[in-house]
Design a protein around this nucleic acid. Sequence first.
DNA 1: GCCAACGTTGGC
DNA 2: GCCAACGTTGGC
Length: 139
Amino acid sequence: MRYWLFKSEPETWSWDDQMAKGDAGEEWNGVRNYQARNFMREMAVGDRGFFYHSQKQRAIVGLVEVCAPAHPDSTTDDPRWECVDIKALIPVKTPVTLDDIKADPRLSEMVLVRNSRLSVQPVTDDEWQIICAAAGVSL
DNA sequence: GCCAACGTTGGC
DNA sequence: GCCAACGTTGGC
């Protein structure tokens, strides 16, 4: 199983919105970036990810699971853009903020730190474990 | 609200 | 195929 991070502006699509969708999940649509799309193509059903709120909050707030593999993005007719579906698993006990992540030298190589603009990104096994511990969650 | 970083577009 | 111009994202 691989791990990922999904970034969203809560004003547009928040963790609460995601949880309201339940097990049905929802398309992670609207991505118009080749790198991010390519990562989604690599995803498999059952892969897990962090749900990150950008902008004001800047924190990981929940855990999600990929529930459908990459398919055409329903919000565009442009065949270049694909997306996966994800569903909320559990909220974190303690949000892990960008400041927290930057303060931990073990997380200094995270894409979130290195390339803050990439909205879908891979997370290593080690990074996953460290952040889950900090967030007070385990699966 | 500003601006740095980055990606995309289009003229040459 | 290069690169200047432009648009967008997201941290600060």
